[in-house]
Simulated assay, not measured.
Amino acid sequence: MDLELKSKTAIVSGASTGIGRAIARALALEGVRVVAIARRKDLLEQLAKELHAAGGAVIPVTQDIMAEDAAKELASAAIAELGHVDILVNNAGGSRPLPVDAPDSDWDEAMALNFTRYRQITHALLPQMIERGWGRIINITGKSEPEGLNAAFAAKAAVHAWAKGLSREIGRHGITVNCIPPGRIMSEQIRRNYPEDYRKHFAEEEIPVGYWGEPEDLAAMAVFLASPIARYITGTVIPVDGGLRRYQF
């Protein structure tokens, strides 16, 4: 299927490894010019070289998403590189388990990383999307079944609510907003924190398809939602989890 993505432009945050890297790679191979954002310069440059050799275009931009005014700086840098931005993939973030007595500063940091930066960079890019009458905003979020107190879960729930409301405001401009909560997707952190025997047992007992996903499994959904073909899908939360989640809607 031709996803009609050739000549489109995109920003992907958290693009040095894992899900972000897979999305940046998949978009680039579809002909999208991608600004890939992360803190690890060497990994971004390696990705850019790989994609260049494969005929894709990735522009590495090293940036700490938590820096003051990071969202405005990233939006300006991407527009300077690309001319305009059609697709935004908000992917940077991280788990933040906290004790009940955690200080406000820990909650503030988690909310800034996992919600506020998504909102800020999106709103910084919206005017030029509205002017062009087209855009795709894709948020990589998290599960809605917390097994404990984790500030990232609260922040990702905020992303879901914000994205739904935003989708109703900007749909008439040809802009869609969707969220993808990952299931158990293999990554550096997963391999470091969960031994192989645990992963095997968990997959057999909890994941209907019987295995942990790869970043490319989620990237396939992100690329589809980024395409003109997905024009009638907005305001949704679409898990990519091998059937892990148990709720019926």
Results as ranks from 00 to 15, higher is better:
residue 146 P to N: 07
residue 99 P to V: 13
residue 186 M to I: 12
residue 234 T to C: 08
residue 20 G to N: 09
residue 51 L to V: 09
residue 103 P to V: 05
residue 120 Q to E: 02
residue 82 L to Y: 03
residue 32 V to S: 02
residue 205 E to W: 05
residue 87 I to P: 09
residue 148 G to Y: 08
residue 46 Q to L: 10
residue 122 T to C: 00
residue 112 A to D: 12
residue 5 L to I: 15
residue 29 L to E: 14
residue 15 A to P: 11
residue 37 I to L: 03
residue 36 A to S: 07
residue 95 S to W: 06
residue 96 R to N: 08
residue 35 V to K: 04
residue 22 A to C: 10
residue 104 D to Q: 15
residue 60 P to A: 09
residue 234 T to N: 01
residue 7 S to F: 01
residue 1 M to E: 13
residue 41 K to P: 13
residue 54 A to F: 12
residue 85 V to D: 01
residue 118 Y to W: 02
residue 151 A to L: 10
residue 164 K to V: 04
residue 27 L to A: 04
residue 17 T to V: 12
residue 163 A to M: 06
residue 123 H to P: 00
residue 249 F to K: 11
residue 149 L to V: 05
residue 46 Q to G: 10
residue 43 L to T: 03
residue 234 T to L: 10
residue 247 Y to L: 03
residue 207 I to M: 01
residue 42 D to P: 00
residue 84 H to I: 02
residue 170 I to K: 12
residue 112 A to F: 05
residue 169 E to G: 07
residue 120 Q to C: 02
residue 187 S to V: 10
residue 40 R to A: 11
residue 12 V to H: 11
residue 167 S to P: 13
residue 219 A to S: 05
residue 102 A to D: 14
residue 36 A to C: 07
residue 3 L to E: 00
residue 126 L to N: 00
residue 108 D to C: 11
residue 249 F to P: 08
residue 60 P to S: 07
residue 56 G to L: 13
residue 154 A to E: 05
residue 14 G to L: 05
residue 120 Q to Y: 01
residue 17 T to S: 10
residue 227 S to Y: 11
residue 67 A to D: 10
residue 12 V to T: 09
residue 87 I to W: 07
residue 211 Y to H: 14
residue 210 G to D: 06
residue 171 G to T: 07
residue 126 L to W: 06
residue 152 A to L: 01
residue 208 P to A: 02
residue 14 G to D: 06
residue 182 P to I: 00
residue 119 R to A: 13
residue 119 R to E: 08
residue 233 I to F: 14
residue 200 K to T: 14
residue 141 T to A: 07
residue 181 P to F: 02
residue 218 L to Q: 15
residue 212 W to G: 06
residue 148 G to Q: 08
residue 27 L to G: 03
residue 108 D to L: 14
residue 35 V to A: 06
residue 72 K to V: 05
residue 47 L to K: 11
residue 23 I to M: 09
residue 3 L to G: 15
residue 118 Y to S: 04
residue 50 E to R: 05
residue 227 S to A: 01
residue 7 S to C: 00
residue 169 E to F: 01
residue 150 N to Y: 09
residue 232 Y to W: 15
residue 244 L to G: 13
